[in-house]
Design a protein around this nucleic acid. Structure first.
Ligand SMILES: [Mn+2]
Ligand SMILES: [Mn+2]
Ligand SMILES: [Mn+2]
Ligand SMILES: [Mn+2]
Lengths: 227, 227
DNA sequence: TTAATTTGTTAGTCATAACTAACTTTTTTA
DNA sequence: TAAAAAAGTTAGTTATGACTAACAAATTAA
């Protein structure tokens, strides 16, 4: 089955479900994703996801047994990766050429990723000279759907004294991204973990000669590389 | 009512119907557009247009009496013009930056025009340094929805001996646009009408030291300025 | 190991937007 | 001006993708 056939005839909803399932499957390293989990993630009812999963199973994009966990077929994964590629290329374009800030791009990219034109995405890629990462630090899959999945180490998982570099951030919350920028953090920032407070799991960090206290919830959304 | 409120909450279908009605109202200089005409144009059944027109009347974008002709309110026109602006800006971007040919852009722009982001369209406009015309020679409305409607004089309406300049072409047919390019015609080409044949209304024209015979149907889709 | 809780499924409803078939009104033509 | 044709409307159907409420299965806790 060719790539061209892959991206055909899917509705916006079908695409969003496949992408969501793919994201959950790589996030949850347990490798198990259930119906209600998917419903939570997409902010729809479990009945809605159950119904859509049936359609996607009939179309051979999803495999699962009744009451069992959800899996993607190779074709399902392929569609999801191409959507992620489009999403991240558009975010990059909006940031680098159209004066969007990193907190403004996700919502618009959620729409743009559903535009059906192989040529559009590949030409956009070429126009930007094949960028490797999006504005949030995420790797952009290439035209063949190949890409490195960076191991996601959260800032919150580090011990006191650890020194790391900011690799990527969760892109879905506008307020979180604005907050990151405001305190002066950016991709590649070098961060030292000064103290992890037992009482509320808040973390005292240092970066660019600045000290800040951030919550556990904040640190959960910051991904780092230990150095 | 502000512009921001204007573009909100409309479905892709509602937008397409408003744009189609607007286009028909300026094309048909009689100023009268009926339900079946709209259905023809959108390639849906008269029942479908009738149903949608009811919704658009309820939302105050369309005005008409039962069995009467269709009209747009100021708000309806405003939405249509903004869609046309987006459509033409995207076509221009695809042609000038992403290596699309003028016969490839319309279909993709039909999708892109429905992306909801005021900032996106205005930044795209700025990025291209506020282009005034799209790849087919059509005027692009500015951010306030202002633009000149060029009088549409078809090549087919000219008399023998007339000399004119190609101003714009109908953008909806891929095969037509390819044909125009192939014979060597382009925007601004100077065309002389050598002969109008009574038998089948075919026209012998001259441009760039070339002579060609074109059909009435061809000449109906070529818009010119007499010089 | 039984009971409670969580997870997943089914049935039935609603909104959107398409369709066909049948009907009504308006316009045209004979 | 009466009949025919065209234009417009209505009713009823289908598909998609949401929802709630009720129910069943699987998991967890007592
Ligand atoms: Mn994103
Ligand atoms: Mn999306
Ligand atoms: Mn166009
Ligand atoms: Mn469109």
């Amino acid at each position: 089955m060719t790539n061209k056939l892959n991206l055909k005839n899917l509705t916006k909803s079908e695409e969003d479900y496949l992408k969501a399932l793919f994201q959950l499957l790589i996030e949850d390293d347990s490798g198990k994703v259930g119906n209600n989990q998917l419903a939570d993630y997409l902010k729809v009812s479990p009945a809605s996801t159950n119904n859509m999963i049936k359609k996607l199973k009939a179309k051979k994009y999803v495999v699962s047994e009744k009451y069992g966990k959800l899996e993607l077929t190779e074709e399902g994964k392929s569609i999801a990766v191409r959507l992620i590629r489009k999403h991240r290329l558009w975010e990059t374009f909006l940031c680098n050429y159209l004066n969007f800030s990193w907190d403004e791009v996700h919502e618009v990219a959620e729409q743009l990723e559903h535009i059906k034109s192989q040529k559009l995405v590949n030409e956009l890629d070429r126009f930007m000279d094949f960028p490797s990462k999006d504005p949030h630090g995420e790797v952009i899959p290439n035209a063949d759907g190949e890409y490195f999945v960076l191991p996601k180490i959260t800032l919150s998982s580090l011990e006191e004294g650890a020194v790391c570099q900011l690799v990527s951030v969760n892109d879905a919350s506008v307020t979180f991204l604005k907050y990151v920028s405001e305190i002066g953090l950016a991709l590649s920032s070098e961060i030292k973990v000064l103290e992890v407070r037992e009482f509320d799991s808040s973390i005292r960090i240092q970066f660019n000669q600045v000290e800040e206290t951030v919550t556990r919830k904040f640190a959960d959304n910051v991904f780092v590389k230990v150095i």
